[in-house]
Design a protein around this nucleic acid. Structure first.
Lengths: 223, 223
DNA sequence: CAGTAAAATATTTGATCATATTATTGAAAA
DNA sequence: TTTTCAATAATATGATCAAATATTTTACTG
């Protein structure tokens, strides 16, 4: 299988592909990947795959285990606390900055994403929920125009994404975080602090679900 | 076989070398690096250099400019605000966590680093100042045992390091941030919040110096 | 002739691949 | 059980490609 769209370099395409596999839940926490496996699966050379993996490791999306195993990290309770702290430090601020720049059409767009998200929750579509949930946050934050904070935020999403997926697969789409309506209402009123607070509550809810899941059992049987 | 055979892979060594070049100020903001330049300078192959660069780009230590130029990013005022916010969100917390785990010998060690730092300031040794300043923070944070927050912090240091170096080169070691004695006193008393506050003040001071430097003129090569 | 714009050429630089090397794992044989 | 050996996988190198930049040459205008 060859990767197309030859506008971008191969290593970039490989990076995006693996990132997508992680965020969509096709790769689960603890699951391992091999360089040669990706090479043959994607039909590309070794070098671009190595670069993409190195980049993802720097972002915390992949990690070394043992001496020759690259796999998705498993979020322990302590690590989840770290991610939680970092997300609650960064993302509400991104939401705050973004709100001050939002135009009505931007809010409309976010509203539509949230509608799709609600539809996914109602129909128990885990994959749709994950996709639209991520899209909602990313689209909002993008308006902040804060490159560095965005990069940190994206890295944190890569760390928490796989675990969130596991939770959804286990408990379904009921009781999932959705403070988005609250956030949208605050956006309509231009209440930046209100949006920031809603986002913080949203993060808290999501992490609470993961935490409950952690206390019940391990993330997944590994090897 | 030799247990201490500390044979690190080439890409790791290259990564550390470039990182050191950046943190020590041998590479200035805006300065460009080339893959082949590093290949011939370090006497290694192209792949490990590419991997190291990709990793450093993910950490924000290097960036693309134009379509074919890799260089150290220049911190604009806006970007500095972002780094400042992120550092003040993360590092005081790391200091807080670390303080709760500090033993007397750890504080002694930090005290010695601070002594060396003061010596460097007194003698106008910019390089020594930078080295010991970084060492002080990193050694303290390491006790927090918070891998993810540490990784974020290190990335932020890579972003701000080069600019701090330029400031020192321009204004000398006078008026440099040093809230370390304050932090050390709080450590002795086990006052975690006090340490966190001192660290925040230290960060604020350092960034204020950079901000002043930015308002005077654009960053230029040093030495 | 002088000066500038355009075209052609050379050089630099990142991107990719095929291949060789090294180290670890796991299975087979002693 | 221990040793040996093959399979596997990461690591590393240099050659080659393509795109972008720098340089030189050429051509045209005033």
């Amino acid at each position: 299988m060859n990767i197309s769209a030859n506008n971008l370099p191969t290593h970039e395409l490989v990076y995006r592909r693996i990132r997508e596999l992680i965020l969509s839940g096709e790769l689960a926490p603890g699951q391992s990947v091999t360089i040669h496996g990706l090479v043959s699966e994607l039909g590309v050379g070794v070098t671009p795959v190595r670069e993409a993996i190195r980049r993802l490791m720097a972002e915390g999306a992949l990690e070394f285990r043992g001496n020759r195993r690259i796999c998705l990290p498993i979020l322990s309770s302590d690590l989840l606390d770290e991610v939680s702290f970092a997300r609650k430090s960064i993302e509400p601020h991104l939401a705050y900055l973004a709100t001050k720049r939002l135009q009505n059409k931007d809010i409309d767009q976010l509203y539509q994403i949230d509608e799709a998200l609600n539809g996914a929750i109602a129909s128990g579509d885990v994959r749709g929920y994950l996709q639209h949930n991520g899209q909602f946050h990313e689209t909002l934050y993008a308006h902040s125009d804060a490159r560095i904070l965005m990069a940190i935020s994206k890295s944190l999403w890569l760390r928490v994404g796989p675990s969130l997926r596991v939770v959804c697969g286990r408990f379904g789409t009921a009781n999932l975080p959705d403070k988005h309506s609250e956030a949208l209402a605050a956006m309509r009123e231009g209440d930046a602090q209100g949006v920031a607070d809603s986002i913080e509550a949203d993060i808290e809810q999501g992490h609470e679900a993961i935490r409950r899941s952690l206390s019940i059992g391990n993330t997944r049987d590994v090897d």
